[in-house]
Design a protein around this nucleic acid. Sequence first.
DNA 1: CTGTCACTAGACTAAACAGTCTAATTGAAT
DNA 2: ATTCAATTAGACTGTTTAGTCTAGTGACAG
Lengths: 200, 200
Amino acid sequence: MKKQPTREKLLDITFEEVYINGYTATSVDAILKKASVPKGSMYHHFKSKKELVLAMVKERLFPKMDAFFSYEIKENESITQSFRNTFLVVSKNRLLVTYGCPLYRLMVELSATDKEFDTVLSIKANEMKEGIKAMLEQGIALGEFDKSLNSETFATYMLTSVWGILSLSPSLSSSKTFLIQSQYILDSLEAYLLKKDGSL
Amino acid sequence: MKKQPTREKLLDITFEEVYINGYTATSVDAILKKASVPKGSMYHHFKSKKELVLAMVKERLFPKMDAFFSYEIKENESITQSFRNTFLVVSKNRLLVTYGCPLYRLMVELSATDKEFDTVLSIKANEMKEGIKAMLEQGIALGEFDKSLNSETFATYMLTSVWGILSLSPSLSSSKTFLIQSQYILDSLEAYLLKKDGSL
DNA sequence: CTGTCACTAGACTAAACAGTCTAATTGAAT
DNA sequence: ATTCAATTAGACTGTTTAGTCTAGTGACAG
């Protein structure tokens, strides 16, 4: 168990603390205590609390999300099935089901009042929307969905409604209810499904 | 323009400040300054910041939401149309579209870390779910929806997905995109619609 | 007119906050 | 071994925070 470099340890602990408590409610001192890092070290690596958290967003939060969502469709798998699989993976992630999407939580807390956070977080949100949009368009191109499907607005709908469902109070959320509700999202996609033979 | 009683003025300003900035990022001093109320007066009426905000939740936030959502169905109006009307009303509310639902924002910020807030806010969230659920059940009873519709989970889905859609970054939200996306929610209800004659 | 009590007023306190400073220590290069 | 820059260490500072305290004010009942 070799010693983790200070900067990396700080980013890890900052992710955990800010995810659960939010940006404002997380104090620098609390992060330092949990990480067992003295103040001077932190302010050597980061010029302020905000810089620390912005670095955490770019070097921890974003990579975590990139690793989670692939937007790739496996061979012989329909786009619908691909979405279903992603929902299944999400439902199995205890933290996501309990506390919601960390990107979304930060957006809700900070986007209205902090332009810099809003810009950075919106870029990732947009990237995710584009990923979903590309999948939907692939589905249209392959004849799975009707051309009348507006991939832009439907992608945004899928993304934000999943965020909303996930961000229920921890006391009310469960992986089972998430799965049922994600099915309703797929139901709304059904309206654009081009039924072929009775293969399903 | 008669002078507003101190307590009432404090609740009004507290609602505005906490709605936009959140609980933690709103300081008592900021509220007092904006309301032009001295500290002693506030601590005469409320024993702490938390009590002030809890009172605001009960005496401002909840009544505002009660006034907004009726869960009543007009004569000769289908349940589906009734939902559509509510979405239309929501889309016309600038604050809601810009900043999202104030109840939901507070839940995202506090439910994971504060049991008391979680309890109080969850009660209202549950009440709203029950209101929607009752409408759905009325729709089943009147033959508008199929009996296979799970009113409990679908009501939760409607509520949380609307919250998610509304809580997009202010820089990305608009009343038009909200309306389009709320239509997708109604699309998912379509799967349970008992089509009758060609009256629609 | 006077005593009472709800409320106002704002100076004050102690703790928590983000951020600074200088000195000590480390590790790598020479 | 010596040098030197990168890092660690934590005491310190100034500000903001929620909350206290005591003196005063104003309206109203007797």
